[in-house]
Amino acid sequence: MRIIVHKARCQGHARCSARAPAVFKLDEAGYILPGDIDVANGEQLLAPDGVRSCPELALEIEDPPAARIVPDAILKPRTGVPEHLTTMEFATDPMEQAKITELLDREAIRDCLYRYCRGIDRADEAALRSAYWPDAHDNHGAYCGSAEGFIRFALGVFKTGPRNIHQITNILIEFINPAEAAVESYFTALQRGPDKDGEMRQMLLSGRYCDLFQRREGEWRIAERTVVYDWLEEQIPAAVLESERFGPRQPIGAPHPDDPVYALGKRRIASRGDAFSASERERRISGDDGL
């Protein structure tokens, strides 16, 4: 990993060095030493935190063409490592490397789509936010504006205790460039909750999320979303309470943090902060770090 130092922008906040002192060396006055930085293997976990903590945006990670080394156990049995290549050669070959990167990107995009559903269905603000870039735009039926505004709108709906089930199928990912992808995903949504007059409404909706995904600092999220509607069916909500109707079929899905899925621990699922740092850490360990 290589870090580009925009020395002229450094104002001596020393946040980088506070995070990773071995990577970011300061002069006597507390400003970063000039020259780009080649990060040693042992420091690759902390260095990106140092980069991200610069208030002046004076640091930048150069996109690494570095070799990724993938453990044999993962690759050999199931993927088509060509006979004439060792796993090592396969993993460091630029062509194969690009394929692996694309697969990882596709998975990251899929995860992001699912996090959105988790956010809406479990009234989980962190999961919902983690699907969008902070400056994202959302054209979402009656709502059109900043994703932040949509999230605030959703938070208001969550307070009414709705029942939502969002399912994603048919995900078509087309890369525009290494950092942008046009993504079409079909959704089927069952939605029940009070309308603005307090009357219970139930709806079957189907359509497609048409998303511009962007990759920033290695992470994929939605930058622009347009929801296209293809099907709408108003249903008659059941008059009987859920607990009665479900009978012995327990537990019934609940909002964050009460739903049983959150009890699985912080491994993958909890809130976005944990989920992300965990998966990112794993990606780095198996990937960029060359471990």
């Binding site: 001596g12 020393a14 060095s17 506070a18 300061l26 006597e28 006055a29 507390g30 400003y31």
Partner: peptide
Amino acid sequence: LNPLLSPQ
């Protein structure tokens, strides 16, 4: 003034 209040 910087060196007077540097991190070090």
